[in-house]
Design a protein around this nucleic acid. Sequence first.
DNA 1: CTGTTAGCGCATTCAT
DNA 2: ATGAATGCGCTAACAG
Lengths: 337, 337
Amino acid sequence: MPELQRVTIHDVARSAGVSVATVSKVINGRYGVALATSERVQAVIDQLGYESSLVARSLRSHRTNVIGVLVAEFEPFSTEILKGASQAIGGTGYELLAYSGGGRAGTPAGWERRYLSRLSGTLIDGAILVTPTVVDSGGAVPVVAIDPHAGPAGMPTVDSDNYAGAVTATEHLLGLGHRRIGFLGGRPDLESSRLREAGYRSALAAAGIADDDALVRVGGYRRENAQEPARELLTLPERPTAIFAANDLSAIATMEVAGELGLTVPEDLSVIGFDNVPESALVNPPLTTISQPIQRMGSAALELLIHLMDGGTDRPTHLRLPTELVERASTAAPRRR
Amino acid sequence: MPELQRVTIHDVARSAGVSVATVSKVINGRYGVALATSERVQAVIDQLGYESSLVARSLRSHRTNVIGVLVAEFEPFSTEILKGASQAIGGTGYELLAYSGGGRAGTPAGWERRYLSRLSGTLIDGAILVTPTVVDSGGAVPVVAIDPHAGPAGMPTVDSDNYAGAVTATEHLLGLGHRRIGFLGGRPDLESSRLREAGYRSALAAAGIADDDALVRVGGYRRENAQEPARELLTLPERPTAIFAANDLSAIATMEVAGELGLTVPEDLSVIGFDNVPESALVNPPLTTISQPIQRMGSAALELLIHLMDGGTDRPTHLRLPTELVERASTAAPRRR
DNA sequence: CTGTTAGCGCATTCAT
DNA sequence: ATGAATGCGCTAACAG
């Protein structure tokens, strides 16, 4: 079928009877064009519905006023970031471009480096990397990382206070009267996971409760991986009365396992999660959790990035946003025995 | 500061002691390169961390394996679409690029046409337009529209059954015993908004309730725009006992205004929304709403688009997905007076 | 097998 | 005030 061709600057030039250069000047509002000519060209542009190609323009001028948000996948966390960035971009004169490969397959690791190489220097003037595993920016354009897996190392970073959040979660359980509190950790190779465990241990220590490694398991942040360790914790001879899961998905898995074992939440077992993803409000009972201000992390990252792109150097390049306890219905005082 | 320059194909060529064309051949796996040369070039590529520029490549070859999702803004609806598209793109060999301008300013209308012009023909091989107001694709690349504001006219479309959903919502309120039911509409120029209002009116008529324009306001689908008209409805001499808001964001705005006015939901006022975005489950009380299968609309659009890009012509180009009532806690029987 | 040549659509000197 | 020439990074002919 005869696909209509895109109208290019050449078509406009020919149609207006001027040169390509003149059209370019009109578009970019440069000096050196007679008013009459300018108006005629503008009329043709409107009539043809011409719009300059981002690609060609950027290849030439190396500036696009476009900011890239690079993600591994569009899932709840990254789309919340997008919402936050989208709110913050109003009035800045920039536009947003979010890029993601096709799911996880074929993206071994280091997707962020690939995407950055493919887009930077030409298509985008700066980038926000969402939960990157690699921290080497490559240096082509300014980059801000959100919640990098290895912690803030070198590049400007926005994350939330994992340590304080974990302390809060543990203190919440302590405040309810729990003394035997289990911890279902994330992946030991991730900074966020390490910090959450550290917060848990330190809150226990502050309450004068001895460390007990029997109550600590690795859940890996994923539902399937968390179920077995959750079962181990809940079948311990001296079962914990509460469990702090390192993220909401493992907390949900824990509640599922509890159900299978005939335990009622929160009467027999209190469960608290971390992240406050939308799903956490939908489970039964609704999950008490620690909320990360994900949208605000997105807008903060965007503002920091623009500051950096403008050559600013006078701001802290590491923003740590506070976490917050969200009390729902999965925690309660332990049953007296 | 000395920003490191992007590594270009020239750097690779020079470093490997071959011509630019040879490097290009190696990258694209074309015939006509000696194994030894190929390996040497590949080694240099790895060492330098070179990745070809999407922009330059697309300008030249007019094919990128990238699908564009063009949205006015990253808000709950469009990001759900993104999630759906993201799921469906796995294994297709395409990558996803979502594009949005900077908020509403300077984007009078027709943003979709502008974005399409800027990106198509070069950067993206096909596009999904999310709630576009203009239905003229321009013809440069295959396009699928999701929930177009003017209804399915000409271009391939995916939407949901707005009319039936609105009838369901209104009947739900009627079934609870409400008789004075307000409607907080979207933008009158949008087809979805008109259909939702039509469904509302027709359900009222079927119940033998006379039309009352005093109970109908325009909320514009956005939180800020909806607050004032919501306030008007709730301060009416004879206040409605229930409000059907044309989308979840306006429903949430309505609940906020109700709170300011000292009204309790659902005791003093029932509120029902439309869309079932994740946020609707997180507000207090959780919002009763009409669910559109938004993620499925995203994946359906992606599949239809790829079919079209492959030259397929044997599928219906208009998909209408069903809506469904999701009962949560923002609706109840009216209080007796 | 490999290098040379010629654009893709556009913005920018530099002439005229 | 306008146009011709040049190059951005890359791929596709073709020539050697």
